[in-house]
Design a binder for these strands. Structure first.
Lengths: 133, 133
DNA sequence: ATCTTATTTGCGTATAAAGGCAAATAAGCA
DNA sequence: TGCTTATTTGCCTTTATACGCAAATAAGAT
C-alpha cells in the first residue's frame, strides 16, 4: 500500500531545495574516512562493533557513534544477538556510489601524478610541490 | 603517456586507508545543500557566480567559496571571460552520483512517510513524532 | 587615470563534527 | 544476585565549516 504522491524520486533536479538537506546529510555520512573504512570492512558481511572498531583502529565508543550515524542515513542496519550488536550494509547503492567516487578520485589522482611527473622528472626530493595544496 | 602503476582505481575496496581521505573529501564537497543546489543549477549549463548565488539565495562571496571548494574536488571547472567567472560541471559522474543518492533518499523518505501514516491516521497535530530525529 | 562591475579573500563568529574518557545500559553467566 | 563482556551515552575539548561583512583584486568602460 503506497502512501503518498512521491513516486520514488530518481533525479536530484526534481528535488525541492528543502529536500536537498536530506541528500546532503546522506553525503555527509560518507564524508569521513573512518566510516568509509568501516563500510569497506562490512562488505565482508555482518560484523560486531568491536571487530569493526579494531579493524579501523579507533575506540569502540567512536565506532558505535559512526555506525549510529550511518544507520540514521539508512546505510547500515543493526541486529543485536546476545550481548553483541551486528552491523551490515543496508543500502545496496553504497557499493555503486563509492565505486563511482573512487573512479573519479582515482582518475584525478592519476592526473595529478602525471602532471607532477611532467614537472619533476626526477622522482626524489619534491622541493617545489605541484599539489593543489 | 601513463605515469604510474595506478590502473584507474575503480573499487573502493582496493583503496588503502590513506586514500579514503580523498574519497571522503569528495563526498564532503557534496555534503552541503547550497552546493547541491548550485550543481543542480549548473545542469542548465555554464553560469556566472552572481547568477548562481542569486538562484541559491546566498551572497556572492559565499557562493564563490562554495564553487572554489567544488573546484578543488574536480566537480566544477572555471573559465573567466571579461570581468565574470563562469562555472560548469566538470565531473560527469556527478549526475549519476546525485541521482543514485536521490533514489536512496527518496525511497527512505517514502518509507518514513508511510510508516508515519501507519502510526498517525489523522494527518494533523503530530503529538508523538515517529521521525528518526 | 578613474569609475564600475564581478569576483575573491581576510577576519571574526557561530555552529557542527570527531575523538577521549568515564559512566550508564544491556545481556548473558557463575 | 553479583560478575563479565559488549555497546552506548554524556560531557568536554579540539578542529573544521559556513556565513556575514568589509576590503582587496581583476577586467572593462568612460
Amino acid at each position: 500500500m503506497q502512501a503518498t504522491d512521491l513516486p520514488s524520486i530518481s533525479r536530484m533536479q526534481d528535488l525541492p531545495p528543502a529536500a536537498l538537506a536530506l541528500v546532503a546529510a546522506y553525503f555527509q555520512a560518507l564524508a569521513e574516512p573512518t566510516r568509509l573504512q568501516a563500510l569497506n570492512f562490512l562488505r565482508g558481511g555482518e560484523r560486531r562493533v568491536g571487530e569493526i572498531a579494531e579493524h579501523c583502529g579507533c575506540t569502540q565508543a567512536n565506532m558505535s557513534r559512526h555506525l549510529t550515524l550511518l544507520g540514521k542515513q539508512g546505510l547500515v542496519a543493526r541486529t543485536s544477538r546476545g550481548t553483541s550488536a551486528f552491523y551490515r550494509i543496508a543500502d545496496e547503492a553504497t557499493y555503486a556510489l563509492c565505486d563511482l567516487v573512487c573512479h573519479s578520485v582515482g582518475r584525478r589522482l592519476q592526473d595529478l601524478t602525471s602532471e607532477r611527473a611532467a614537472f619533476a622528472p626526477a622522482p626524489a626530493a619534491p622541493a617545489q610541490r605541484k599539489q593543489p595544496r
